[in-house]
């Protein structure tokens, strides 16, 4: 096939945050160093990535072991603010995709115009029949979907072929 590698990452720490983005942004910055991302973008600092999920939702990825402690820290800093912090590290599966033609492979199953995607854009979209999100990371791509459909996603990615392969 091609030289694309598809790997399932071990559990990734994930903290879901709901609330007013500027208040969330301040405390996340203080705890992780990640700046508040612009609409649809992500920012990274010190092994953390902060993803813009919607106008009142952020997703912070971190070391899985540290997730509960970070979530507690964020929760206490947000006390008194209408905000929700949830450790949802088990809810999703993250894939790492690397190699030439990943965009073309993903375009088998996602209605996404990759040429128009910003370098730090997080694209939440439909991957064949399930929701998924992708963003660029370390020269490759990160893809996440819900845990229960990880095998389906894996099957989809392995069945997909980039144009020309």
């Amino acid at each position: 096939m091609s030289d694309i590698s598809i790997s399932r990452l071990p559990i990734t720490g994930m903290i879901g945050l709901r609330g007013d983005l500027s208040s969330l942004g301040k405390v996340v910055k203080a705890v992780t160093g990640c700046a508040l991302p612009d609409q649809r973008m992500c920012t990274s600092a010190d092994g953390h990535t902060l993803l813009w999920m919607s106008r009142d939702e952020l997703l912070l990825t971190c070391n899985a072991e540290a997730a509960e402690a970070i979530a507690s820290d964020l929760r206490s800093r947000l006390s008194g603010v209408f905000a929700t912090v949830a450790n949802i590290s088990s809810a999703r599966q993250v894939f790492e995709l690397k190699g030439q033609g990943v965009e073309s492979l993903l375009a088998n199953v996602m209605p996404v115009d990759f040429a128009r995607l910003d370098a730090s854009e997080v694209r939440r979209t439909r991957m064949a029949q399930v929701p998924a999100a992708i963003w660029r990371h370390d020269g490759g791509w990160r893809l996440m979907c819900f845990r229960s459909v990880a095998d389906y996603a894996d099957g989809l990615l392995r069945a997909a072929r980039p144009v020309g392969a």
Partner: peptide
């Protein structure tokens, strides 16, 4: 209008 993306019907 919430995220600024123009998307096709299958995403909605």
């Amino acid at each position: 209008p919430n995220c600024g993306l123009s998307v096709e019907e299958t995403e909605l």
